[in-house]
Simulated scan of single mutants.
Amino acid sequence: MEATTLLIFYAFVFIRLLSIFISTGNERKLKKMGAVEYGKRNSAFLVLAHFAYYIAAAIEGGRRGAFFFDAISFAGLGIYVFSILMLYYVIYSIRHVWTVKLIIAPASHHVLNRSFLFKYIKHPNYFLNVIPELIGIAVFLHAWVTLGVGMVIYLIPLITRIRQEEAVMKEHFQNY
């Protein structure tokens, strides 16, 4: 893998790690408020699957001799940039309740977001960030096997998370 591609991949990892630090900080604050975590095992599997996907894409891209200066890589980079913009918009929108885990704060601190994005797109973090992020990184690195096989594997805990989140939100918020 050429140096430019490797540098961009490391930037992808760094950007994702920043979101983990935000999540960890929010999680600590939420738990001090009395927040409760749901679906712990699935959350752990999602985090593991996310990093495994990154590693698989990097290995596959490296073996294929992934190079940066072609239309496919630029398309992947564009998809990835879109996904990260959406990630940080979601973080900004829901602020202190955003985590990579399924955590519900006490009612006094957990308010449903009714903005345009959340009103018209259910689970924007998953559909506008996570899925495009994984597609973007695989396309950027020309990691077609990772995209096909890895995405199918990743969708198992992601669909489980969405179902868990739906059930928990309906249980805690009457007007969800």
Rank of each mutant, 00 (worst) to 15 (best):
K40W: 00
A58D: 07
E27S: 14
Y176L: 08
M169F: 11
F127G: 00
F67K: 11
K29I: 11
H110N: 15
G34K: 11
N129P: 00
K119D: 06
S93W: 04
L77V: 07
A49S: 14
Y154F: 15
G62I: 03
I15V: 13
H50C: 04
M86L: 04
I84H: 00
H110M: 12
N42S: 00
R163Q: 15
P106W: 14
I131K: 05
V36I: 10
I162W: 00
I135H: 07
H109A: 15
S83K: 01
T24E: 15
L7R: 10
L48Q: 03
H50Y: 13
T5I: 12
V13D: 07
I8C: 10
H109C: 11
M1V: 05
V47D: 07
I20F: 03
F127I: 08
I135M: 10
Y92V: 01
F173R: 02
V145K: 03
W144S: 10
V100G: 10
N42Y: 01
K122L: 10
L102M: 12
I131R: 05
P157M: 13
M151L: 15
G39I: 00
E2N: 12
E133Y: 02
R95S: 15
A167Y: 05
G25F: 07
V152N: 00
K29A: 13
K101A: 07
E27H: 09
I72Q: 11
I121L: 04
A57N: 00
I131A: 08
F116C: 01
M151Y: 03
A107K: 15
H96C: 09
R28Q: 11
D70R: 09
